[in-house]
Design a binder for these strands. Structure first.
Lengths: 158, 158
DNA sequence: ACTCCTTAGTTCGTAGACCACACTATTCGC
DNA sequence: GCGAATAGTGTGGTCTACGAACTAAGGAGT
């Protein structure tokens, strides 16, 4: 029951987190990737390159992802004033509305996973996970909170 | 810093776990889904329906997943002796070898995520996560350990 | 100005993942 | 037997993701 045990529980926890995320995404008519994209745009417009870095996606993958979200009217590409090559991806009004509702819903669902825990266990869990995240220069994970100083925002993601 | 916080850290932890899994999969020439499939077959052959249940996949999705793994020579479909409709998916020799190496590697990588933690924090983390898993009748997550009594194997996954 | 290099994004072709739906073959309950 | 449920396949479609080739626009140095 060494590291193997910890690896196994981490993986299985990750699995149910992903399933929850998937389920909530579907209920809002989104794919998980689109939902993640919208959430990352909630605090404000972001450039394609930066988004790709956060999500660990190649730029061509980003183009496709944003294309599809744009086709659904959830985001728009705003030309960057000081660099005519670049563009910023921004939420539309319906996109903002949807993202907000989704964010709220998924936050509840995920927090509910720990409902069976005692309050101080929940607290300790959050702290411990934060230690892990901080130690790995976490690069965003689909919630705008990612841009708050939970982990080192300026640090390189590896 | 209410439940929202916990939701955020859970999600971000899940993100880095998935990234680790993805990275190791790639190093072994596998997609994460194929890697997960192989790992679930390590303890022995399993029927398509059961696999689909564990992975939350429709049967047609299972067909494709197994097809591709079979095309690569990693698994075979063994006709079920007592039900001529059914078949069991089993690892081939190369499949077993690859799955074993992958499992070993990914276990190390995931356990390494918690390297910065103190030993008793790691222990407590594993215990707490186990509580969450047990409370949610976890349905397997890509490691054969899934078939051990960490969570209730017979319980419905919702 | 004028090359050369880098950077931001798009386009295209390919492969995998996943689903819904329609379909076949078998088993089971009565 | 007969009808219903079950195991699995096949089809068509969308989404995800990648690499390679490409365009357009900065930036550096001479």
């Amino acid at each position: 029951m060494r590291g193997e045990q910890l690896a196994a529980v981490l993986l299985r926890l990750s699995f149910i987190v992903q399933q929850s995320y998937l389920e909530v995404s579907r209920e809002h008519g989104l794919t998980p990737q689109q939902a993640q994209l919208l959430c990352m745009l909630l605090p404000g417009p972001v450039g394609m390159a930066e988004l790709g870095g956060w999500l660990h996606l190649e730029k061509s993958s980003m183009s496709g992802l944003v294309d599809r979200a744009q086709r659904r009217g959830l985001v728009t590409r705003v030309p960057d004033a000081r660099d005519r090559r670049a563009c910023q991806v921004a939420l539309t009004a319906p996109g903002t509305e949807l993202a907000t509702r989704f964010y709220d819903h998924v936050s509840r669902s995920l927090a509910a996973l720990a409902d069976g825990l005692r309050a101080d266990d929940r607290r300790r869990l959050a702290l411990t996970i934060n230690h892990i995240l901080a130690a790995h220069g976490v690069p965003v994970a689909g919630l705008p909170v990612a841009r708050l100083p939970v982990a080192d925002e300026t640090a390189e993601a590896r």
